[in-house]
């Protein structure tokens, strides 16, 4: 009688142990499963944040690109006829503005560089890779105008940057009635937020 009861109790406690082990295993599996989900989710979120930061940088550069190419200090006057209504830049105004780096610093916060390049006809001969400066054959023998470069070591701008470009009509007044237009490109760079921590826009 007693042995039967004892056997029953042992069987019951064994069953209980098996059930406990089962429960523990299920709990472990659940913890493992949710752990994996959390890891995937956090990685996904991290990528999303990085993507958003990149997008914000690009938006900032895009907005600055529009503002800079539309600056009255650069835009063609009405003397350029129908070209003046489009994204037209006066090459002489460009020359004047390339000597006013401080203006960009004052008016546009968070810039790292502004450059205008000649695209077509491409610069040839001595003009290849040359910055444009005033001379007799201006603007023939040069390749680009460096309007602004953020000084390195100023605490910002030394890291990576996002740059965007857009085509512009680059016009030069030859006489009071004659003007010539070529195809240019304006490049605007902003420092990456992640690299510098610099904020702000124009």
């Amino acid at each position: 009688m007693h042995t039967n009861i004892l056997r029953n109790q042992i069987r019951k406690s064994k069953k209980g142990q098996v059930k406990m082990i089962e429960t523990i295993l299920v709990l472990l599996a659940l913890v493992f499963f949710f752990g994996i989900i959390i890891i995937f989710y956090s990685r996904f979120q991290l990528f999303e944040v990085q993507r958003l930061a990149q997008e914000v940088d690009e938006e900032r550069a895009s907005s600055l690109l529009g503002k800079i190419s539309g600056m009255p200090e650069l835009k063609c006057s009405v003397s350029f006829g129908s070209a003046s209504g489009t994204d037209c830049i006066d090459s002489y105004k460009l020359l004047a503005l390339s000597k006013q780096q401080a203006k960009f610093e004052e008016e546009f916060e968070g810039l790292s560089e502004v450059r205008v390049e000649r695209v077509y006809p491409p610069p040839s001969g001595a003009g290849i890779g040359q910055a444009c400066e005033f001379g007799n054959d201006y603007p023939e023998n040069c390749a680009y105008w460096q309007l602004y470069t953020r000084a390195r070591g100023a605490g910002q701008g030394a890291g990576s940057r996002t740059s965007l470009d857009s085509f512009v009509t680059l016009c030069t007044q030859r006489s009071s009635v004659l003007y010539e237009c070529e195809i240019g490109r304006i490049v605007v760079g902003v420092p990456d937020r992640g690299a510098t921590g610099a904020g702000g826009g124009a």
């Binding site: 690009e58 938006e59 857009s166």
Partner: peptide
């Protein structure tokens, strides 16, 4: 994706520049 919008603007400004090219 905003790169698509930007590329559209780029092509638009290129066409404008081409039409006014001397």
């Amino acid at each position: 994706s905003s790169p698509l919008e930007r590329e559209n603007t780029r092509v638009n400004s290129l066409l404008n520049s081409i039409t006014h090219f001397t």
